[in-house]
């Protein structure tokens, strides 16, 4: 029993208290770049989650065999291998998504989120904890990408996942699809998250 609630806490941590995008503020490059559409945000989130999960498993299995001095180059090669597999898989089966994500798929390799997890967690804990942590962080990252992407897509194009959501004479805010929109939306969302967090803490103290 004791083991399962450690796993559960590892998993839950990634979703809210240590959500990579809104709390740890790491892995921002793809977060801003591909979230003009929810479909792309979802694809990038899942690609990152898969790479994180797969490389966490491999690295935590071989954590004792990789000498300390060459750990960063070795981890990066393992991550780069999985990212290449994901990129080839996307090109073969989802050509339009792969074209939309374009140059940001290989950037998953240098995403501070993944290398940070390997170094801080996967390379020091047994496999099952690494899996729970990777799943938590991966899903947390995907959810935060989709939250940001839905705000930008609904305001920018009036659609959600391609279906028209806002009717009537709504003039879409084109700025939401351009870089300034990404920066402004994420900045305001961070503020919102802090406000929610303070409210939750305040109510907890009252109890």
């Amino acid at each position: 029993m004791q083991r399962t609630n450690i796993l559960f806490s590892d998993f839950i941590k990634g979703l809210w208290q240590q959500n990579p995008t809104f709390r740890l503020l790491i892995g921002m490059c793809p977060t801003l770049a591909v979230t003009s559409q929810v479909q792309n945000g979802l694809a990038m989130g899942l690609a990152t989650a898969f790479t994180l999960l797969a490389s966490s498993i491999i690295i935590s299995i071989f954590r004792n065999f990789i000498p300390r001095e060459v750990r960063i180059p070795s981890y990066i090669v393992i991550i780069a291998t999985f990212v290449t597999i994901v990129s080839l898989f996307l090109k073969a089966n989802f050509p339009e998504v792969s074209k939309d994500l374009g140059p940001y798929v290989p950037l998953i390799i240098v995403n501070c989120l993944i290398l940070g997890r390997q170094e801080a967690f996967a390379s020091k804990n047994p496999v099952y904890r690494a899996i729970a942590d990777a799943l938590g962080m991966g899903i947390g990252f995907t959810l935060s990408l989709m939250v940001l992407a839905s705000v930008r897509e609904v305001l920018g194009m009036g659609t959600l996942l391609g279906h028209q959501v806002i009717f009537g004479n709504f003039r879409p805010w084109v700025i939401m699809l351009t870089p300034p929109g990404a920066f402004l939306t994420l900045g305001l969302l961070l503020g919102l998250v802090n406000i929610i967090d303070k409210a939750v803490k305040a109510r907890k103290e009252k109890k």
């Binding site: 351009t178 870089p179 300034p180 929109g181 920066f183 503020g191 802090n194």
Partner: peptide, 21 residues
């Protein structure tokens, strides 16, 4: 209060990006 740190930086970056557009 809630925008201190990264929040306000991103908003400023948004305005800078607008200028560069």
């Amino acid at each position: 209060e809630s925008l201190k740190g990264p929040g306000i930086t991103l908003i400023i970056a948004g305005i800078l990006a607008l200028i560069f557009v």
